[in-house]
Structure formats: C-alpha cells, structure tokens
Design a binder for these strands. Structure first.
Length: 360
DNA sequence: TTCCAGGCCC
DNA sequence: GGGCCTGGAA
C-alpha cells in the first residue's frame, strides 16, 4: 500500500462538488424559465399527471423517438385506457400492439409492471421514485421522471440526453463508460435540482427538451442556449467533445436463411424463444445455411424455393444478413411447432419490423 | 451503406 | 459489462 501523502478523493465528494453547488440555483432558474417559454408542452402525455399515462409514455420513449411513439401511445391508450385493462390483457396482445417499436423486453416488463400495480398496489402506482424503481422495467431514471412529473418529487433523471447536457455544463471529464464516473454524475445531477418541488416538472422536462433540441449530439446550438455562460464546455468552445464515452462497439456479422412458407394464402410462423433476439415474437423459420433450408424445403415440396432479395438488419452487436426463400406449398404440412396465419390475421401477431416489411 | 443513439435487465 | 431493436443521420 502506498502511503497517503495527500487527501484521497472519497466516494462521496470530488473537486467538482463545490462548483456544482454554486451553479445550481442559477442553472435551475434558467432552465425552468426556458422550458416554460420554449419547451414542449403539447405532447399528449404532457396533458396529464396520471402516472399510468406518464409511465406508458416514458417506457415507450426509452430508446425511441417522439414521432415514432405518438401513434403507438394513442393506440395503446385506446385499447388499454387504465393500468387494470393492461394488466388483465394477454401478453400476446400487448406484444402485438408493441410490434415495430423494438426492444420487446419493454413490452414484457410493461405487462409485468401493470400486473404488479394491480396485485400489489391496489391498482394505483406508488407515489415515490424509490417505490416506482422496484417495478419491472422502471429503472432509476424513469422512476425519477414519473415521480417528478406526477408528484413534484425532487429527484434526478439521468438518461442519455441529460448525460450530454450535464456532461457539457460541467465539462465533466470522467469517462461515462465507467460506472464509478456515472455515479459521480448522478450525484451532481442531484445537486443541481431546483429547491422547490413545484418546479420539478418544468425542470425535468427542460433537461429533456434541451437535450433533444439545442444541446444535440452534433452541432449544438450554444448561442441559443439558456445556460450559455454557465456551461463550462460552451465557454471553452468544446461542447461537442462532451460527454466522454470510450466504450466502443464490437460488431460482428451474422448471415442466415429465412424460409417463407405459404399455403392457400396462409404464412407459416414460428414463435421465437422467450429470450434473445426477437424474444417471444413470431418469425419465419431460420436456418444457419442454405443447405439446411433446402433440406427442409425438399421435405415439404417438390419445387425449389424462390430466392428473394436479401434483407439487412442491424442490431447493437451484429449486422444481420437475412436471405428469404419463398416456397408455395401444394399440400398443407406442419413443419413443426408454429401456426399457419392468414394475411388478414398477421396484425394479431407480434412480428419483428423487417419481417413485417418483407410480408407487407 | 454504415454508424450511432438509447435505459433497463441479467 | 453485454444484450436488446429500430430509425434517422452521416
């Protein structure tokens, strides 16, 4: 062990803490005023403080842009107007309503969360961020968003947009790929909260709006920013260099063959396993090479399947090349566990986006 | 055509 | 720390 000749930074304080505390009142004041004048107010989930509606919007908005969410949000509310109607629905229907939104574990967690609210909270969402964060699919940031919007709780959010806003404001030099540095930024986010709970909805929305508009990843509009002059990265003219994230993506390639079987206008679909890519969704049978697909095809028909143009699909960690092969069967067969689905019934099945496109 | 953002769970 | 999906930007 080296001798301690100088004070060692502890887990609870660092050199930025004093700066952040001094910045806090002015930052909150400006952000709240800017949000009230220039922020977004007309989105459907901003017309309510009903935690069910706010929760639904927050889950949909995770990893998904506002314009995409709008249609799904309205359809969901029309079908599931209350948390109870959602809890009482079948998971398959929830997944079908979610199809195309991606990250399907969100839909499973949504359903599980609704059931927990029904069964363990008497049908009412809990009113604190700490309790909300115990529910499926609600993490620290989403819990804080709901609690601040619906209940004025003084609690910090820290999603990707906010990491960018605060990373720049403080010229935060920690690498956010490190959980210790992320923890530091959470602490600063808490220090920056406005003193009055009544300001929390505008403050939280202001952080989101700023990150979604002026404080964009590329070409931030610092000249229009309400915290111009307070923002350290802007003062140095290096806003685009923050936040710092070193994690680099290792991408691989996956090539597979997709067997599109059709018989009298019906399409053969198989439900995917409950974990992994497209968990629980319905897809065409997949093969790791063309020979395997052809062997299966030969067992079902005398004719050869017709090659269709390849489909490219990207996931976080690999690029996926799918080769569809279409085969119309004269005789009906049951290739295994699955279902023959009429075209008109496709909407009732949760299909991954590229398959919906291929069949559509 | 490729690259990238994005919150939670295990 | 790795996996998940899609849309939009580069």
């Amino acid at each position: 062990m080296p001798t301690l000749s100088a004070p060692t930074p502890t887990a609870t304080t660092d050199a930025l803490d004093t700066t952040v505390a001094a910045l806090a009142p002015d930052f909150a004041l400006r952000l709240v005023a800017w949000q009230r004048q220039h922020g977004r107010h007309a989105l459907p989930w901003q017309q309510t403080r009903d935690p069910y509606r706010v929760w639904l919007s927050e889950i949909m908005l995770q990893q998904t842009q506002v314009t995409t969410v709008l249609g799904y949000y309205q359809r969901f509310l029309a079908r599931f107007p209350t948390v109870r109607t959602l809890a009482d629905a079948h998971l398959d229907e929830v997944l079908a309503m979610w199809q195309g939104l991606g990250y399907y574990s969100r839909a499973r967690n949504l359903h599980r969360c609704a059931q927990a609210v029904r069964d363990q909270h008497g049908g009412e969402f809990p009113r604190t961020a700490a309790q909300l964060a115990e529910l499926s699919g609600i993490g620290r940031s989403t819990a804080a968003a709901i609690a601040s919007f619906c209940f004025d709780e003084r609690v910090a959010i820290l999603d990707g947009n906010v990491k960018r806003v605060l990373g720049r404001l403080l010229a935060f030099d920690g690498d956010l790929a490190s959980s210790a540095q992320e923890k530091r930024l959470w602490r600063h986010a808490e220090t920056l909260l406005p003193a009055a709970g009544a300001d929390m909805p505008s403050y939280t929305q202001g952080l989101m709006d700023l990150g979604a508009s002026l404080c964009a990843t590329r070409s931030p509009q610092c000249l229009l920013c309400p915290v111009q002059g307070l923002c350290e990265a802007q003062r140095r003219g290096v806003a685009e260099q923050f936040p710092i994230k070193t994690r680099k993506l290792k991408r691989s390639r996956r090539e597979q063959w997709w067997l599109w079987l059709e018989h009298e206008g019906r399409i053969w679909l198989e439900q995917r396993p409950a974990t992994g890519v497209w968990a629980g969704l319905w897809s065409l049978p997949l093969f790791d090479d063309e020979a395997q697909l052809l062997a299966q095809a030969q067992a079902l028909a005398a004719t050869a399947p017709e090659p269709l143009p390849r489909v490219d699909h990207a996931l976080t960690h690999f690029d996926w090349v799918l080769h569809p092969r279409r085969l119309v069967l004269e005789r009906r067969a049951e290739p295994g566990p699955g279902a023959w689905v009429a075209r008109d019934d496709l909407a009732r099945y949760a299909l991954p986006a590229p398959l919906k496109k291929l069949l559509g």
